[in-house]
Design a protein around this nucleic acid. Sequence first.
DNA 1: AAATAATATTAAACTAGATTAACATTTAAT
DNA 2: ATTAAATGTTAATCTAGTTTAATATTATTT
Lengths: 194, 194
Amino acid sequence: MKIQPLLTYINKIVTLTEDEELYFASKLVYRKYLKGQYILQQGDICNTSCFIISGCVKMFYVDDLGQEHIIMFGVENWWASDLGSFISHAPSDFNVQCIENTELIQISRSNIEKAYSKIPKLERLFRIIIEKAYVASQKRIVRNFSMSAKQRYLVFKQSYPEIEQRIPQYMVASYLGITKEFLSKIKSQIANQH
Amino acid sequence: MKIQPLLTYINKIVTLTEDEELYFASKLVYRKYLKGQYILQQGDICNTSCFIISGCVKMFYVDDLGQEHIIMFGVENWWASDLGSFISHAPSDFNVQCIENTELIQISRSNIEKAYSKIPKLERLFRIIIEKAYVASQKRIVRNFSMSAKQRYLVFKQSYPEIEQRIPQYMVASYLGITKEFLSKIKSQIANQH
DNA sequence: AAATAATATTAAACTAGATTAACATTTAAT
DNA sequence: ATTAAATGTTAATCTAGTTTAATATTATTT
């Protein structure tokens, strides 16, 4: 099982003993998905949290008008799950779909709870992980309120240059909350402005 | 020191022994602010997290054009702090200002770290608190992307009816990410539509 | 009670971004 | 190599929300 990337990631935040690593590893499931497959579907209950080893996923929801809104992308060393559904057993508002062949590590709700009890350090680990995710989420709200679409695109480009290369432009537009046509216009503006 | 509301709040999430409560309480500072006073100012480092006992605060930032954007309100039993600044010692992007006389309980970064070490259960407590905050933040991003200003206003009204009563309308507009003039228009539309 | 400051309303002109639709280009499949 | 499918571009028209500015209302202070 290729869990080394996850252990490396964890050890940057907390230090686990060999026994703890072994125990935690026993609670994990390694899994491969093909491009196009769904890890989670809107309406289902999200029972696992996924740590991405390789590949790329999009998290999105489809609104009443059938329009897709991408909430986030996930690549190597990112977590993907609908935490709201995961923690409260509620039907998920989101889909998580692979946009590349993807390898990931899953941990189920019951197993993560067992691991928390056995290794309290993991509470610390996930507190810190979620703190960071929350801060990033707040910053995104701020950007959405005070920046134009063009500025948001430039921030995205600068923050995630590798992601932009890997996904079609219409998905970037969806992530930015604008239409693909308008992103196209923005890009030609940028290209012609010097 | 009036920390009972905080202990009551905590005990809904984790169970502390009497000793643990005493230890934790020894790390807290009770404080009163007057309407208009700042708990945190943009550019300062946020060194404390605040639990509100009574009163109301707004968290906002002022953009390059001098415009104020309200990120959240805090009332009884809510936390207020710039977590990004708090966890990374970085200058804060936000102001937190009292819009009513406010009583709150502060815990400093160093004291919360001490408390985490002494009482690992607190890691769990704050993991759970931040999980909830993160989920709420994600939901707000979704709303901002897929709902009109009118719909967002109606959701706000329904979610926080008590808050709407306590704050001026132009602050609601700022929180919703629209101008006060447009909120006024929305309200008259709603009033005239039956 | 009058005066001032703070908050809210209304309406006209304006703009960022959406919608529609036609066309161009790239990628994948046969 | 050809075709079909997916992705990207361009331009005209439209709309949700902004800006500006004048006026009205409500609180607060003296």
